[in-house]
Design a protein around this nucleic acid. Structure first.
Length: 500
RNA sequence: GGCCCCGUCGUCUAGUGGUCUAGGACAUCUGGUUUUCAUCCAGAAGAUCGCGGGUUCGAACCCCGCCGGGGUCACCA
Protein backbone atom coordinates (compact mmCIF):
# COMPACT_ATOMS: atom_id res chain seq x y z
CA UNK A 1 0.00 0.00 0.00
CA UNK A 2 1.39 3.37 -1.02
CA UNK A 3 0.97 5.98 1.70
CA UNK A 4 2.47 9.43 1.36
CA UNK A 5 2.31 12.28 3.77
CA UNK A 6 3.02 15.89 4.31
CA UNK A 7 3.53 17.20 7.79
CA UNK A 8 3.55 20.98 8.06
CA UNK A 9 3.83 22.75 11.34
CA UNK A 10 1.22 25.34 12.13
CA UNK A 11 3.54 28.28 12.58
CA UNK A 12 1.87 30.90 10.45
CA UNK A 13 0.78 31.24 6.87
CA UNK A 14 0.81 28.39 4.37
CA UNK A 15 4.15 28.19 2.62
CA UNK A 16 4.46 27.53 -1.11
CA UNK A 17 6.74 24.61 -0.29
CA UNK A 18 3.90 22.85 1.49
CA UNK A 19 1.69 22.70 -1.56
CA UNK A 20 4.73 21.94 -3.70
CA UNK A 21 5.38 18.80 -1.67
CA UNK A 22 1.75 17.92 -1.18
CA UNK A 23 1.12 17.97 -4.90
CA UNK A 24 3.75 15.33 -5.50
CA UNK A 25 2.54 13.31 -2.52
CA UNK A 26 -1.04 13.42 -3.70
CA UNK A 27 -0.15 12.62 -7.30
CA UNK A 28 1.98 9.66 -6.33
CA UNK A 29 -0.72 8.31 -4.04
CA UNK A 30 -3.39 8.79 -6.68
CA UNK A 31 -1.32 7.07 -9.33
CA UNK A 32 -0.65 4.05 -7.15
CA UNK A 33 -4.02 3.75 -5.59
CA UNK A 34 -2.64 4.86 -2.28
CA UNK A 35 -3.44 7.47 0.31
CA UNK A 36 -2.14 10.95 0.99
CA UNK A 37 -2.01 11.86 4.67
CA UNK A 38 -1.79 15.28 6.24
CA UNK A 39 -0.31 15.35 9.71
CA UNK A 40 0.03 18.41 11.88
CA UNK A 41 3.42 18.70 13.56
CA UNK A 42 2.77 21.04 16.42
CA UNK A 43 5.40 19.89 18.88
CA UNK A 44 6.84 23.36 19.24
CA UNK A 45 4.45 25.13 21.52
CA UNK A 46 6.38 28.38 21.28
CA UNK A 47 5.87 28.71 17.56
CA UNK A 48 2.28 27.61 17.39
CA UNK A 49 0.05 30.18 15.70
CA UNK A 50 -3.71 30.06 16.04
CA UNK A 51 -5.41 29.90 12.67
CA UNK A 52 -2.42 28.31 11.01
CA UNK A 53 -4.09 24.92 10.74
CA UNK A 54 -7.08 26.49 9.01
CA UNK A 55 -4.72 28.26 6.63
CA UNK A 56 -3.24 24.89 5.68
CA UNK A 57 -6.64 23.39 4.91
CA UNK A 58 -7.83 26.41 3.03
CA UNK A 59 -4.70 26.61 0.89
CA UNK A 60 -4.82 22.91 0.09
CA UNK A 61 -8.49 23.24 -0.75
CA UNK A 62 -7.76 26.14 -3.03
CA UNK A 63 -5.33 24.15 -5.15
CA UNK A 64 -7.51 21.07 -4.90
CA UNK A 65 -4.92 18.83 -3.26
CA UNK A 66 -7.13 17.16 -0.70
CA UNK A 67 -5.72 14.81 1.95
CA UNK A 68 -7.28 11.36 2.25
CA UNK A 69 -6.52 11.32 5.95
CA UNK A 70 -5.98 14.26 8.28
CA UNK A 71 -7.26 15.66 11.54
CA UNK A 72 -10.12 17.15 9.54
CA UNK A 73 -10.73 14.32 7.09
CA UNK A 74 -10.32 11.53 9.61
CA UNK A 75 -8.70 8.13 9.08
CA UNK A 76 -7.70 4.95 10.87
CA UNK A 77 -4.24 6.03 11.91
CA UNK A 78 -5.07 8.97 14.14
CA UNK A 79 -4.69 11.13 15.98
CA UNK A 80 -3.10 13.14 13.17
CA UNK A 81 -2.03 15.96 15.41
CA UNK A 82 1.24 15.38 17.22
CA UNK A 83 0.28 17.21 20.38
CA UNK A 84 -2.42 14.56 20.81
CA UNK A 85 0.12 11.75 20.60
CA UNK A 86 2.33 12.69 23.52
CA UNK A 87 1.81 9.38 25.34
CA UNK A 88 2.98 7.48 22.30
CA UNK A 89 6.23 9.40 22.03
CA UNK A 90 6.84 9.09 25.73
CA UNK A 91 6.46 5.35 25.62
CA UNK A 92 8.90 4.93 22.74
CA UNK A 93 11.40 7.34 24.25
CA UNK A 94 11.44 5.33 27.43
CA UNK A 95 11.89 2.19 25.42
CA UNK A 96 14.98 3.75 23.92
CA UNK A 97 16.31 4.67 27.34
CA UNK A 98 15.64 1.12 28.58
CA UNK A 99 17.49 -0.42 25.65
CA UNK A 100 20.44 1.89 26.28
CA UNK A 101 20.03 3.79 23.04
CA UNK A 102 19.04 7.02 24.70
CA UNK A 103 19.81 8.75 27.97
CA UNK A 104 18.61 11.40 30.34
CA UNK A 105 20.43 14.68 30.14
CA UNK A 106 20.30 17.24 32.92
CA UNK A 107 22.57 19.88 31.47
CA UNK A 108 21.16 23.35 31.99
CA UNK A 109 20.87 25.70 29.04
CA UNK A 110 23.74 27.84 30.32
CA UNK A 111 26.12 24.90 30.22
CA UNK A 112 24.99 23.99 26.72
CA UNK A 113 25.62 27.54 25.63
CA UNK A 114 29.09 27.51 27.14
CA UNK A 115 30.00 24.27 25.43
CA UNK A 116 28.78 25.69 22.17
CA UNK A 117 30.70 28.89 22.60
CA UNK A 118 33.89 27.01 23.35
CA UNK A 119 33.43 24.82 20.29
CA UNK A 120 33.00 27.81 18.07
CA UNK A 121 35.96 29.58 19.57
CA UNK A 122 38.14 26.57 18.91
CA UNK A 123 36.85 26.27 15.37
CA UNK A 124 34.75 23.16 15.79
CA UNK A 125 31.14 22.61 14.83
CA UNK A 126 29.13 23.19 17.96
CA UNK A 127 28.12 19.85 19.41
CA UNK A 128 26.90 18.51 22.71
CA UNK A 129 29.83 17.09 24.64
CA UNK A 130 27.94 13.99 25.79
CA UNK A 131 28.37 15.04 29.39
CA UNK A 132 25.42 12.98 30.63
CA UNK A 133 25.81 10.10 28.22
CA UNK A 134 27.48 7.71 30.56
CA UNK A 135 25.77 8.48 33.82
CA UNK A 136 24.67 5.28 35.60
CA UNK A 137 21.09 4.72 34.58
CA UNK A 138 19.79 4.10 38.11
CA UNK A 139 21.18 7.38 39.30
CA UNK A 140 19.67 9.26 36.36
CA UNK A 141 16.31 7.63 36.92
CA UNK A 142 16.32 8.69 40.52
CA UNK A 143 17.00 12.29 39.56
CA UNK A 144 14.14 12.16 37.08
CA UNK A 145 11.83 10.74 39.70
CA UNK A 146 12.82 13.54 42.02
CA UNK A 147 11.47 15.94 39.45
CA UNK A 148 14.76 17.28 38.17
CA UNK A 149 14.50 19.04 34.79
CA UNK A 150 15.79 16.86 32.00
CA UNK A 151 15.64 15.97 28.35
CA UNK A 152 16.23 12.67 26.59
CA UNK A 153 18.99 12.43 24.03
CA UNK A 154 19.57 9.66 21.53
CA UNK A 155 22.96 8.00 21.42
CA UNK A 156 24.79 8.28 18.14
CA UNK A 157 26.79 5.09 17.66
CA UNK A 158 30.49 5.86 17.55
CA UNK A 159 32.94 4.73 14.88
CA UNK A 160 30.35 3.53 12.48
CA UNK A 161 29.58 5.21 9.19
CA UNK A 162 25.93 5.92 8.67
CA UNK A 163 24.63 5.36 5.16
CA UNK A 164 21.24 6.67 4.19
CA UNK A 165 19.45 6.36 0.89
CA UNK A 166 17.57 9.00 -1.02
CA UNK A 167 15.59 7.85 -4.04
CA UNK A 168 16.94 10.54 -6.34
CA UNK A 169 20.40 11.08 -4.81
CA UNK A 170 21.33 7.51 -4.01
CA UNK A 171 23.41 6.52 -0.97
CA UNK A 172 24.78 9.30 1.20
CA UNK A 173 27.48 8.60 3.76
CA UNK A 174 27.92 10.40 7.07
CA UNK A 175 30.69 10.19 9.60
CA UNK A 176 29.20 9.67 13.09
CA UNK A 177 31.57 12.24 14.55
CA UNK A 178 29.60 15.02 12.88
CA UNK A 179 26.28 13.89 14.27
CA UNK A 180 25.07 15.29 17.55
CA UNK A 181 23.48 13.32 20.36
CA UNK A 182 20.16 14.84 19.45
CA UNK A 183 17.53 15.76 22.00
CA UNK A 184 14.50 13.62 21.23
CA UNK A 185 12.35 14.53 24.24
CA UNK A 186 12.26 18.11 25.44
CA UNK A 187 11.99 19.13 29.06
CA UNK A 188 8.37 20.13 28.50
CA UNK A 189 7.48 16.53 27.66
CA UNK A 190 7.09 17.18 23.95
CA UNK A 191 9.16 15.20 21.47
CA UNK A 192 11.39 16.91 18.97
CA UNK A 193 10.77 16.53 15.27
CA UNK A 194 13.30 13.73 14.93
CA UNK A 195 11.61 11.35 17.31
CA UNK A 196 8.08 12.27 16.33
CA UNK A 197 8.49 11.85 12.57
CA UNK A 198 10.08 8.48 12.85
CA UNK A 199 7.42 7.15 15.19
CA UNK A 200 4.52 8.67 13.30
CA UNK A 201 5.69 7.69 9.85
CA UNK A 202 6.11 4.15 11.10
CA UNK A 203 2.83 3.95 12.97
CA UNK A 204 0.95 5.57 10.12
CA UNK A 205 2.55 3.09 7.74
CA UNK A 206 3.98 5.72 5.47
CA UNK A 207 5.66 4.10 2.47
CA UNK A 208 7.29 7.17 0.92
CA UNK A 209 8.54 10.22 2.72
CA UNK A 210 8.86 13.31 0.55
CA UNK A 211 10.31 16.30 2.37
CA UNK A 212 12.41 19.38 1.85
CA UNK A 213 16.17 19.16 1.32
CA UNK A 214 16.83 20.91 4.62
CA UNK A 215 16.29 17.49 6.23
CA UNK A 216 19.16 15.85 4.42
CA UNK A 217 21.63 16.66 7.19
CA UNK A 218 19.55 15.16 9.95
CA UNK A 219 18.61 12.18 7.85
CA UNK A 220 21.21 9.90 9.55
CA UNK A 221 19.61 10.57 12.94
CA UNK A 222 16.34 9.29 11.61
CA UNK A 223 18.00 6.25 10.14
CA UNK A 224 19.62 5.45 13.49
CA UNK A 225 16.26 5.73 15.21
CA UNK A 226 14.71 3.34 12.71
CA UNK A 227 17.54 0.93 13.46
CA UNK A 228 17.06 1.24 17.21
CA UNK A 229 13.38 0.45 16.86
CA UNK A 230 14.14 -2.27 14.30
CA UNK A 231 11.61 -0.74 11.97
CA UNK A 232 11.65 -0.91 8.21
CA UNK A 233 12.43 2.47 6.70
CA UNK A 234 10.13 4.07 4.19
CA UNK A 235 11.59 5.29 0.91
CA UNK A 236 12.91 8.82 1.28
CA UNK A 237 12.91 11.53 -1.36
CA UNK A 238 14.18 15.01 -0.67
CA UNK A 239 12.67 17.58 -2.98
CA UNK A 240 14.55 20.38 -4.64
CA UNK A 241 14.49 23.66 -2.76
CA UNK A 242 12.55 26.33 -4.59
CA UNK A 243 14.55 29.53 -4.49
CA UNK A 244 14.01 33.10 -5.58
CA UNK A 245 15.69 34.52 -8.67
CA UNK A 246 18.84 35.13 -6.67
CA UNK A 247 19.08 31.49 -5.67
CA UNK A 248 18.21 32.03 -2.00
CA UNK A 249 15.24 30.78 -0.05
CA UNK A 250 11.95 32.29 -1.20
CA UNK A 251 11.79 35.78 0.13
CA UNK A 252 9.21 36.53 2.74
CA UNK A 253 9.41 40.20 1.94
CA UNK A 254 8.35 39.81 -1.66
CA UNK A 255 5.50 37.67 -0.48
CA UNK A 256 5.66 34.81 -2.83
CA UNK A 257 6.58 32.35 -0.14
CA UNK A 258 2.93 32.46 0.90
CA UNK A 259 0.29 30.56 -1.02
CA UNK A 260 -2.20 33.26 -0.18
CA UNK A 261 -0.05 35.79 -2.02
CA UNK A 262 -0.68 33.95 -5.29
CA UNK A 263 -4.34 33.64 -4.56
CA UNK A 264 -4.65 37.34 -3.91
CA UNK A 265 -2.67 38.33 -6.97
CA UNK A 266 -5.35 36.57 -8.95
CA UNK A 267 -3.50 33.49 -10.12
CA UNK A 268 -5.58 30.44 -10.93
CA UNK A 269 -4.81 27.47 -8.67
CA UNK A 270 -4.55 25.16 -11.69
CA UNK A 271 -1.87 27.41 -13.16
CA UNK A 272 0.08 27.65 -9.92
CA UNK A 273 -0.04 23.89 -9.56
CA UNK A 274 0.94 23.31 -13.16
CA UNK A 275 3.82 25.73 -12.84
CA UNK A 276 5.40 24.39 -9.67
CA UNK A 277 4.99 20.89 -11.02
CA UNK A 278 7.56 21.89 -13.63
CA UNK A 279 10.09 22.89 -10.99
CA UNK A 280 12.40 19.94 -10.63
CA UNK A 281 10.32 17.76 -12.87
CA UNK A 282 9.43 17.75 -16.54
CA UNK A 283 6.78 16.07 -18.61
CA UNK A 284 8.10 13.03 -20.51
CA UNK A 285 6.71 14.46 -23.75
CA UNK A 286 8.02 17.91 -23.01
CA UNK A 287 4.54 19.33 -22.48
CA UNK A 288 4.35 22.47 -20.41
CA UNK A 289 0.65 22.93 -19.93
CA UNK A 290 -1.29 19.98 -18.62
CA UNK A 291 -3.96 19.16 -16.07
CA UNK A 292 -3.35 17.64 -12.68
CA UNK A 293 -5.06 14.45 -13.88
CA UNK A 294 -2.60 14.16 -16.69
CA UNK A 295 0.25 14.86 -14.31
CA UNK A 296 -0.90 12.02 -12.07
CA UNK A 297 -0.73 9.61 -14.98
CA UNK A 298 2.90 10.28 -15.79
CA UNK A 299 4.44 11.28 -12.47
CA UNK A 300 6.91 9.23 -10.50
CA UNK A 301 9.01 10.22 -7.48
CA UNK A 302 12.12 8.89 -9.09
CA UNK A 303 11.89 11.45 -11.88
CA UNK A 304 12.28 14.32 -9.47
CA UNK A 305 15.46 16.32 -9.85
CA UNK A 306 17.88 17.29 -7.09
CA UNK A 307 18.59 20.76 -8.42
CA UNK A 308 17.21 23.85 -6.70
CA UNK A 309 15.12 25.69 -9.24
CA UNK A 310 14.63 29.43 -9.23
CA UNK A 311 11.07 30.59 -9.09
CA UNK A 312 10.44 32.62 -12.24
CA UNK A 313 7.37 34.71 -11.59
CA UNK A 314 7.36 35.99 -15.16
CA UNK A 315 6.89 32.50 -16.53
CA UNK A 316 4.14 31.81 -14.02
CA UNK A 317 2.39 34.93 -15.29
CA UNK A 318 2.65 33.70 -18.84
CA UNK A 319 1.22 30.35 -17.84
CA UNK A 320 -1.59 31.93 -15.86
CA UNK A 321 -2.39 34.06 -18.90
CA UNK A 322 -2.66 30.88 -20.95
CA UNK A 323 -5.10 29.39 -18.46
CA UNK A 324 -7.10 32.60 -18.33
CA UNK A 325 -7.42 32.69 -22.10
CA UNK A 326 -8.67 29.13 -22.24
CA UNK A 327 -11.44 29.84 -19.76
CA UNK A 328 -14.94 30.21 -21.17
CA UNK A 329 -16.47 33.62 -20.54
CA UNK A 330 -18.83 32.06 -18.05
CA UNK A 331 -15.98 30.52 -16.10
CA UNK A 332 -13.95 33.68 -16.31
CA UNK A 333 -16.76 35.67 -14.72
CA UNK A 334 -17.31 32.98 -12.13
CA UNK A 335 -13.69 32.80 -11.08
CA UNK A 336 -13.28 36.55 -11.17
CA UNK A 337 -16.30 36.98 -8.93
CA UNK A 338 -14.97 34.38 -6.52
CA UNK A 339 -11.65 36.16 -6.46
CA UNK A 340 -13.23 39.55 -5.78
CA UNK A 341 -15.30 38.02 -3.03
CA UNK A 342 -12.29 36.40 -1.47
CA UNK A 343 -10.17 39.52 -1.57
CA UNK A 344 -12.86 41.76 -0.20
CA UNK A 345 -13.79 39.50 2.69
CA UNK A 346 -10.56 37.95 3.96
CA UNK A 347 -7.32 39.16 5.42
CA UNK A 348 -4.00 38.42 3.79
CA UNK A 349 -2.05 35.53 5.29
CA UNK A 350 1.64 36.09 4.86
CA UNK A 351 4.79 37.23 6.54
CA UNK A 352 4.45 40.85 5.50
CA UNK A 353 1.80 43.32 4.46
CA UNK A 354 0.18 42.58 1.14
CA UNK A 355 0.94 45.15 -1.52
CA UNK A 356 -1.53 45.81 -4.26
CA UNK A 357 -2.74 48.52 -6.58
CA UNK A 358 -6.27 47.58 -5.49
CA UNK A 359 -7.79 49.17 -2.41
CA UNK A 360 -10.37 47.31 -0.34
CA UNK A 361 -12.99 49.58 -1.93
CA UNK A 362 -11.84 48.68 -5.41
CA UNK A 363 -12.65 45.02 -4.83
CA UNK A 364 -16.13 45.90 -3.66
CA UNK A 365 -16.67 48.47 -6.39
CA UNK A 366 -15.65 46.01 -9.07
CA UNK A 367 -17.85 43.34 -7.57
CA UNK A 368 -20.84 45.69 -7.48
CA UNK A 369 -20.13 46.80 -10.99
CA UNK A 370 -20.10 43.23 -12.29
CA UNK A 371 -23.26 42.43 -10.38
CA UNK A 372 -24.99 45.46 -11.85
CA UNK A 373 -24.39 44.15 -15.36
CA UNK A 374 -26.75 41.80 -17.18
CA UNK A 375 -25.41 38.40 -18.24
CA UNK A 376 -24.66 39.50 -21.75
CA UNK A 377 -22.55 42.45 -20.66
CA UNK A 378 -20.82 40.46 -17.95
CA UNK A 379 -19.77 37.87 -20.48
CA UNK A 380 -18.66 40.57 -22.86
CA UNK A 381 -16.55 42.04 -20.08
CA UNK A 382 -14.82 38.67 -19.78
CA UNK A 383 -14.45 38.44 -23.53
CA UNK A 384 -12.66 41.76 -23.88
CA UNK A 385 -10.39 41.20 -20.91
CA UNK A 386 -9.36 37.58 -20.81
CA UNK A 387 -6.47 37.82 -23.21
CA UNK A 388 -5.30 41.17 -21.91
CA UNK A 389 -4.38 40.16 -18.38
CA UNK A 390 -1.97 37.73 -16.81
CA UNK A 391 -3.79 37.61 -13.49
CA UNK A 392 -6.93 39.14 -12.07
CA UNK A 393 -5.04 41.92 -10.36
CA UNK A 394 -4.08 43.29 -13.79
CA UNK A 395 -7.72 44.09 -14.39
CA UNK A 396 -7.74 47.34 -12.49
CA UNK A 397 -5.49 49.62 -14.55
CA UNK A 398 -7.31 48.53 -17.69
CA UNK A 399 -10.83 48.83 -16.36
CA UNK A 400 -10.78 51.40 -13.60
CA UNK A 401 -12.94 53.77 -15.65
CA UNK A 402 -15.84 51.41 -15.09
CA UNK A 403 -15.74 51.91 -11.36
CA UNK A 404 -14.15 55.24 -10.60
CA UNK A 405 -13.64 58.75 -11.88
CA UNK A 406 -10.46 60.06 -13.39
CA UNK A 407 -8.89 63.37 -14.14
CA UNK A 408 -8.71 64.00 -17.86
CA UNK A 409 -5.33 64.94 -19.23
CA UNK A 410 -6.07 67.32 -22.09
CA UNK A 411 -2.67 66.94 -23.70
CA UNK A 412 -3.17 63.21 -23.90
CA UNK A 413 -6.48 63.82 -25.59
CA UNK A 414 -5.38 66.34 -28.18
CA UNK A 415 -1.98 65.00 -29.12
CA UNK A 416 -0.98 66.40 -32.52
CA UNK A 417 -4.35 67.91 -33.43
CA UNK A 418 -5.80 71.23 -32.40
CA UNK A 419 -8.20 71.65 -29.55
CA UNK A 420 -10.91 72.82 -31.91
CA UNK A 421 -10.58 69.86 -34.22
CA UNK A 422 -10.82 67.42 -31.36
CA UNK A 423 -13.72 69.21 -29.73
CA UNK A 424 -15.63 69.27 -33.01
CA UNK A 425 -14.93 65.60 -33.60
CA UNK A 426 -16.06 64.61 -30.12
CA UNK A 427 -19.25 66.63 -30.51
CA UNK A 428 -19.99 64.80 -33.71
CA UNK A 429 -19.47 61.42 -32.05
CA UNK A 430 -21.64 62.52 -29.18
CA UNK A 431 -24.39 63.43 -31.58
CA UNK A 432 -24.18 60.04 -33.25
CA UNK A 433 -24.34 58.25 -29.93
CA UNK A 434 -27.33 60.30 -28.85
CA UNK A 435 -29.08 59.14 -31.99
CA UNK A 436 -28.73 55.48 -31.01
CA UNK A 437 -32.07 54.44 -29.61
CA UNK A 438 -31.51 50.75 -29.03
CA UNK A 439 -28.39 50.46 -26.92
CA UNK A 440 -27.19 47.26 -28.53
CA UNK A 441 -23.69 46.28 -29.49
CA UNK A 442 -24.39 45.93 -33.26
CA UNK A 443 -25.56 49.53 -33.38
CA UNK A 444 -22.37 50.69 -31.77
CA UNK A 445 -20.32 48.56 -34.13
CA UNK A 446 -22.14 50.31 -36.96
CA UNK A 447 -20.98 53.64 -35.59
CA UNK A 448 -17.49 52.24 -35.40
CA UNK A 449 -17.61 51.44 -39.11
CA UNK A 450 -18.92 54.88 -39.90
CA UNK A 451 -16.05 56.33 -37.96
CA UNK A 452 -13.53 54.42 -40.04
CA UNK A 453 -15.09 55.91 -43.19
CA UNK A 454 -15.18 59.34 -41.64
CA UNK A 455 -11.47 59.09 -40.97
CA UNK A 456 -10.92 58.74 -44.69
CA UNK A 457 -13.15 61.71 -45.43
CA UNK A 458 -11.41 63.89 -42.88
CA UNK A 459 -8.03 62.72 -44.03
CA UNK A 460 -7.24 61.50 -40.52
CA UNK A 461 -5.60 58.24 -39.71
CA UNK A 462 -8.03 55.66 -38.42
CA UNK A 463 -6.28 55.65 -35.07
CA UNK A 464 -6.58 59.41 -34.77
CA UNK A 465 -10.33 59.16 -34.98
CA UNK A 466 -10.57 56.68 -32.14
CA UNK A 467 -7.86 58.03 -29.95
CA UNK A 468 -9.74 61.05 -28.52
CA UNK A 469 -12.84 58.98 -27.93
CA UNK A 470 -10.87 56.45 -25.97
CA UNK A 471 -9.03 59.02 -23.90
CA UNK A 472 -12.11 61.00 -23.00
CA UNK A 473 -14.09 57.96 -21.92
CA UNK A 474 -11.40 55.81 -20.42
CA UNK A 475 -9.00 58.49 -19.26
CA UNK A 476 -6.10 56.57 -20.72
CA UNK A 477 -4.61 55.70 -24.07
CA UNK A 478 -4.91 52.05 -23.19
CA UNK A 479 -8.16 50.17 -22.81
CA UNK A 480 -10.05 47.06 -23.76
CA UNK A 481 -11.76 47.27 -27.18
CA UNK A 482 -13.43 50.66 -27.33
CA UNK A 483 -16.95 50.05 -28.51
CA UNK A 484 -17.44 46.96 -26.41
CA UNK A 485 -16.34 49.05 -23.44
CA UNK A 486 -18.71 51.84 -24.38
CA UNK A 487 -21.54 49.37 -24.72
CA UNK A 488 -20.88 47.97 -21.25
CA UNK A 489 -20.49 51.46 -19.79
CA UNK A 490 -23.93 52.46 -21.03
CA UNK A 491 -25.24 55.41 -22.99
CA UNK A 492 -25.64 57.80 -20.12
CA UNK A 493 -22.15 57.53 -18.75
CA UNK A 494 -20.60 57.52 -22.19
CA UNK A 495 -22.31 60.78 -23.07
CA UNK A 496 -21.23 62.26 -19.79
CA UNK A 497 -17.56 61.60 -20.46
CA UNK A 498 -17.53 62.44 -24.16
CA UNK A 499 -16.39 66.02 -23.76
CA UNK A 500 -13.39 68.17 -24.05
C1' G B 1 34.49 26.99 9.26
C1' G B 2 32.94 21.32 9.41
C1' C B 3 29.54 18.19 7.00
C1' C B 4 25.89 17.31 3.07
C1' C B 5 23.57 18.35 -1.64
C1' C B 6 23.80 20.61 -6.36
C1' G B 7 26.27 22.83 -11.13
C1' U B 8 23.34 22.47 -19.58
C1' C B 9 21.18 29.48 -22.97
C1' G B 10 19.22 35.26 -18.27
C1' U B 11 15.22 31.50 -16.15
C1' C B 12 12.64 26.41 -16.08
C1' U B 13 14.43 22.30 -18.46
C1' A B 14 15.44 17.87 -22.55
C1' G B 15 19.61 14.99 -22.73
C1' U B 16 21.97 8.57 -19.01
C1' G B 17 28.96 7.27 -24.11
C1' G B 18 28.32 8.24 -30.86
C1' U B 19 21.67 10.51 -33.89
C1' C B 20 24.45 17.18 -29.88
C1' U B 21 27.14 21.71 -35.59
C1' A B 22 23.17 20.54 -27.58
C1' G B 23 16.37 20.34 -28.41
C1' G B 24 11.88 22.89 -26.16
C1' A B 25 9.40 26.74 -23.09
C1' C B 26 9.51 31.76 -20.63
C1' A B 27 11.96 36.31 -21.13
C1' U B 28 14.59 39.46 -25.00
C1' C B 29 14.93 41.45 -30.11
C1' U B 30 12.92 41.89 -35.34
C1' G B 31 8.85 41.59 -38.73
C1' G B 32 3.45 40.70 -39.78
C1' U B 33 -1.93 41.17 -38.23
C1' U B 34 -4.37 45.41 -35.44
C1' U B 35 -8.31 52.01 -34.00
C1' U B 36 -5.04 51.59 -28.18
C1' C B 37 -3.24 47.66 -25.19
C1' A B 38 -3.01 42.72 -25.67
C1' U B 39 -3.63 38.16 -28.30
C1' C B 40 -2.01 35.58 -32.47
C1' C B 41 1.64 34.34 -36.46
C1' A B 42 6.70 34.27 -38.56
C1' G B 43 11.79 34.80 -37.53
C1' A B 44 16.45 36.07 -34.85
C1' A B 45 19.80 36.24 -31.06
C1' G B 46 21.25 33.60 -26.79
C1' A B 47 24.93 27.55 -23.69
C1' U B 48 33.24 27.04 -25.27
C1' C B 49 27.33 21.71 -21.23
C1' G B 50 31.27 25.63 -13.92
C1' C B 51 36.91 24.80 -14.56
C1' G B 52 41.14 21.38 -15.02
C1' G B 53 42.77 16.58 -15.48
C1' G B 54 41.91 11.57 -16.68
C1' U B 55 39.13 6.78 -18.79
C1' U B 56 37.65 5.82 -24.00
C1' C B 57 38.37 5.25 -30.99
C1' G B 58 34.65 8.78 -29.02
C1' A B 59 32.07 12.43 -22.96
C1' A B 60 27.25 17.26 -21.37
C1' C B 61 26.81 12.12 -20.02
C1' C B 62 31.92 7.71 -16.38
C1' C B 63 36.25 8.80 -12.55
C1' C B 64 39.38 12.40 -9.71
C1' G B 65 40.64 17.34 -8.16
C1' C B 66 39.30 22.33 -7.92
C1' C B 67 35.88 26.32 -8.09
C1' G B 68 31.01 28.25 -7.47
C1' G B 69 26.03 28.13 -5.37
C1' G B 70 22.75 26.34 -1.75
C1' G B 71 21.47 23.64 2.71
C1' U B 72 22.68 22.36 7.69
C1' C B 73 25.23 22.56 12.24
C1' A B 74 18.77 24.22 18.52
C1' C B 75 15.07 21.50 24.27
C1' C B 76 12.54 24.98 15.53
C1' A B 77 10.36 22.26 12.22
Amino acid sequence: MIRTRNAPSPTGYLHLGTIYQSLFDKAFALKNNGKFILRIEDTDQKRYTPGAVEAIYSGLDWVGVIPDESPKHGGDYGPYVQSERLDIYKKYAQELVASGNAYYCFCPTERLLEVRKKDQKEGRSPMYDKHCRNFPIDESKKRVENGEAHVIRMKIPENEKIVVNDLVRGDIEFDPSVIDDQVIMKSDGYPTYHLAVVIDDHLMEISHVLRGPEWLTSFPKHKILYDYFKWKMPIFIHTPLITDMKGAKLSKRKGHASVDWFRRKGFLPEAVLNFITLLGWSHPEGKEIFSFDEFVKVFDFKDLSAVSPKFDLVKLEWMNGQYLQKLSNVDFVKKLTEWLNYCSTTKYQGATEYESNWSMDDYKLMLNFLNSLNDEKRLLFAEINNQRIKKFEDLLPLNSFFISDFVLDENLLIENKSKEEISEHLDWVKGEIEKIEDWELPNLKKLEETLVKRAGEMNWKVGEVFHPIRVSIVGSTVSPPLFESIYILGKEKTLKFLNL
